[in-house]
């Protein structure tokens, strides 16, 4: 069955859609668009969707990915056009490519993600000290607590840099994702602010997933 890789964005009100709700909304959107989605067999058929990585509720995604199987071929252009007309505000298809049979599932090959974390000036208790980023990255271990357990996120922290200081602070985080090591953007950002001596409330962090990366082609 033909398989298509859809790159989409999830912003605005759609960022509050949970992953499970997104799966249901995408199924309905495909029906509204009249697209021939393939379903699994059995008593409770599921649409054959395969997502790269669930996005946490509240986090915007600029270039998310899902593979979709169809019962018969459609052109990527038509798929994108028809689906876009059936998606609610905040969900938008950016690009579609057909992927050959046998391509591994996105979730299996997903490797890293780039996040942007923005904090407004009025939520920052002070200036970011000089050298804070270098000192943070120079650590051999960065311990965070997740569900009561201490864990070291340093191996999963690939890069951190300051993107902008205009009217606040914008960080770029590159994190391992999928597979064995999975670092959450908010825990990496919190650890950074802690090490920089800035008390920033998690409620003041606006997080966006800007990129997803995996090993090898194809990608739109």
């Amino acid at each position: 069955m033909p398989r298509y890789r859809i790159c989409y964005s999830k912003t605005g009100p759609a960022r509050y859609i949970s992953h499970l709700d997104l799966v249901r909304e995408l199924e309905r959107a495909m029906r509204r668009a009249g697209l021939p989605v393939a379903f699994s067999g059995g008593f409770n058929p599921h649409p054959r969707f395969s997502f790269a990585a669930p996005l946490p509720v509240g986090v915007e995604g600029l270039a998310e990915f899902v593979d979709v199987e169809m019962t018969h071929p459609v052109t990527p252009r038509e798929l994108a056009g028809r689906l876009n007309e059936a998606l609610p505000p905040g969900l938008a298809v950016r690009e579609v490519v057909e992927v050959p049979a046998g391509t591994p599932a996105l979730a299996a090959v997903l490797d890293r993600a780039v996040y942007h974390v923005e904090v407004d000036g009025d939520a920052l208790p002070g200036m970011l000290p000089a050298g804070a980023v270098e000192r943070f990255l120079a650590q051999e271990k960065i311990e965070v607590t997740r569900r009561g357990k201490r864990r070291d996120i340093r191996p999963g922290l690939l890069d951190l840099s300051v993107m902008s200081r205009d009217g606040g602070l914008a960080l770029r985080l590159e994190l391992k994702t999928g597979g064995a090591i999975n670092v959450r953007p908010e825990e990496a950002a919190e650890a950074f602010f802690r090490s920089a001596g800035l008390a920033v409330d998690a409620a003041d962090m606006r997080i966006t997933r800007a990129e997803l990366h995996w090993g090898g082609p194809p990608r739109p």
């Binding site: 605005g12 949970s18 509240g58 609610p88």
Partner: peptide
């Protein structure tokens, strides 16, 4: 900011089909 701190923020944003 408020919506980052509540369960099921989707209850309060609308934007449905």
């Amino acid at each position: 900011r408020i919506l980052r701190q509540v369960q099921k923020p989707g209850r309060y944003v609308g934007g449905e089909w």
